[in-house]
């Protein structure tokens, strides 16, 4: 298994990436971690004429907090996400999820931007971004725009990212105190995509859930935000009945297909179970509860 012929570009600045994207259009592919793209190229299912390697661009890496927003460079690796003190303190769902993605070597290469932007419904970060209500900074030569993750995903491998655009940053609203979060993923083995997974954030005040979000991985054409599941626990004490209602709602919202991971029935049931577990863990992590 070897890739086809291409020309390799390794720009040092975002502007140069944007110029190359503008020039090559469909013939150019951005190489970040490469662990989705390179296997496709080796299978000759992807044959870009130009590879634009963004790994030399320091400004695309790193995690910082500014004005109530956690800003993550798109080329930040999953290993860096796992090791980030800031995230482990303020938004642990991201490092928790990163530990469930692929394996140590792949996490050293794989980036959060690639995971969010390539449109594979098996990727774990999109559901988390939906739950966190994150937004993506997309740049092209004309300028930049900010798009909510909740508006980004369209279909399998189809997103709002235009051919000439680069995802440069991910903006995550810093979770308020009293927010608990959890990502629960069932998979066959290390390195596998989810049979089903659920990302949950919830906030509690005086024993009542004041805000919640539930999103699902690999059980539809894109990551799915289950508004109904969130509604089921909002305003409740997040008791067993509310959790069951949320699980039922998530199951109703998901659209898995049968594959090697299981039947539609099984994967739907796992959506319910992962939702239950994620809500329970998120609740247990609400500070002071």
């Amino acid at each position: 298994m070897t890739p086809g012929v291409f020309e390799y570009h390794r720009p040092n600045k975002v502007e140069d990436v944007l110029a190359l994207l503008a020039e090559f259009g469909d013939d150019g592919k951005v190489l970040a971690g490469g662990h989705s793209l390179v296997p496709m190229m080796k299978l000759r299912l992807a044959e870009p004429a130009h590879i634009i390697d963004i790994n030399a661009i320091a400004s695309l890496r790193g995690i910082r907090e500014e004005e109530g927003m956690i800003v993550i460079g798109a080329a930040t690796t999953q290993a860096e996400i796992m090791g980030s003190d800031l995230l482990n303190e303020k938004c642990r769902i991201l490092p928790d999820a990163a530990a469930l993605i692929a394996d140590p070597q792949v996490r050293n290469c794989g980036t959060i931007g690639g995971n969010c932007a390539n449109g594979d419904p098996g990727n774990d970060d999109p559901a988390i971004m939906l739950a966190l209500n994150a937004s993506y900074t997309l740049q092209n030569q004309a300028g930049q725009r900010q798009i909510a993750a909740r508006e980004f995903y369209e279909a399998v491998y189809t997103t709002a990212l235009a051919e000439d655009e680069l995802l440069t940053e991910i903006h995550v609203p810093a979770p308020a105190k009293g927010t608990g979060m959890s990502y629960q993923k069932i998979k066959r083995k290390v390195g596998d995509y989810a049979i089903a997974a659920a990302a949950v954030t919830l906030s509690m005040s005086a024993g009542q859930c004041t805000d919640a979000a539930v999103a699902l991985t690999n059980v539809g054409d894109t990551a799915l935000l289950s508004l109904e599941a969130a509604e089921a626990i909002k305003g409740s004490a997040v008791d067993a009945r509310a959790i069951d209602r949320a699980a039922d709602a998530a199951m109703a919202d998901c659209e898995p297909v049968e594959d090697m991971r299981g039947t539609v029935e099984y994967r739907t049931a796992m959506v319910g179970e992962m939702t239950r577990r994620a809500i329970a863990e998120a609740l247990s992590r609400v500070a002071g509860s």
């Binding site: 390799y8 490469g34 296997p39 140590p104 070597q105 792949v106 290469c109």
Partner: peptide, 9 residues
């Protein structure tokens, strides 16, 4: 860093 040389150019 540990990496998999089959998936890096």
């Amino acid at each position: 860093k540990s990496v998999k040389a089959c998936t890096i150019f």
